[in-house]
Amino acid sequence: MAIHERSLVDPERILRKERLVIDGIDVSGDWNLIILPRVIEDYDLSFLDEVLEQPEGKTILQCYQCSYCTASCPVHNYWDERYNPRHFIHLARLGLIDELQKRADVMWRCVSCHKCTHRCPKGVLVEEVLKAILRVMAKRGIIEEYPSKKFDKFFLESVYEYGRIEDGELLFGWIEKQGYQVVKDPVLKKPIPFMGGVPEWLKQLAIKPIKNMNIGFLILNAKHMLFHPRTKNWNRFKQVLRKVMEEEGVFAH
């Protein structure tokens, strides 16, 4: 391992003492820091096999840990230092499941900007590999349902059902899922954008086209809200889609 994995040292195993005497010799000062040794026995190598089974995960073995991905990553640089793609790949290859689990709260934060994949000198599809790792973690139940996955599934439902998505439905459906009170008209059960307990910013944005008298825009979006745009002859294709996704276990977890 070329790069010292500082983050693998747990804080509770670092001992720092003001005065330290070992075998009757005073070693205070420079030698007051001790890291208790750690023995890892539970390398789970089947984790890597499972990642390799995913079509996107195949390139994980090409990684030589140069950390160009991490250096490029906007989530690492501008949001949370703990988000470290290189390190996640390293852990997945070692099969250190509990270390991955400790990072489960940041692992989903990837915004899919593909800087990592683009710049990787070894041709690792980093973003795709990380998504494959996440998927295996979800399959094993070591990562809880995270916001972006909820949104992904919500989005997929719409695609699966109609073949196309509709922006208004997606936005207000998601807002409703977040626990906001969305007012719906009594007949068609469609959301009324500028009423109820939706966030203030959304209300203000939704009312803009009305203030601007942008009638064409309003009619178009109202039409789409009432009649969801859909692909013709979708049903037969939907069956195949369902079969494929069932094989992948999309509906199971």
Binding site: Q54, E56, S112, F151, D152, V244, E248
Partner: peptide, 12 residues
């Protein structure tokens, strides 16, 4: 399918 579908299902 955008990014969202890709994260859930490869074959889909």
């Amino acid at each position: 399918g955008a990014m969202e579908t890709k994260n859930v299902t490869f074959w889909g």
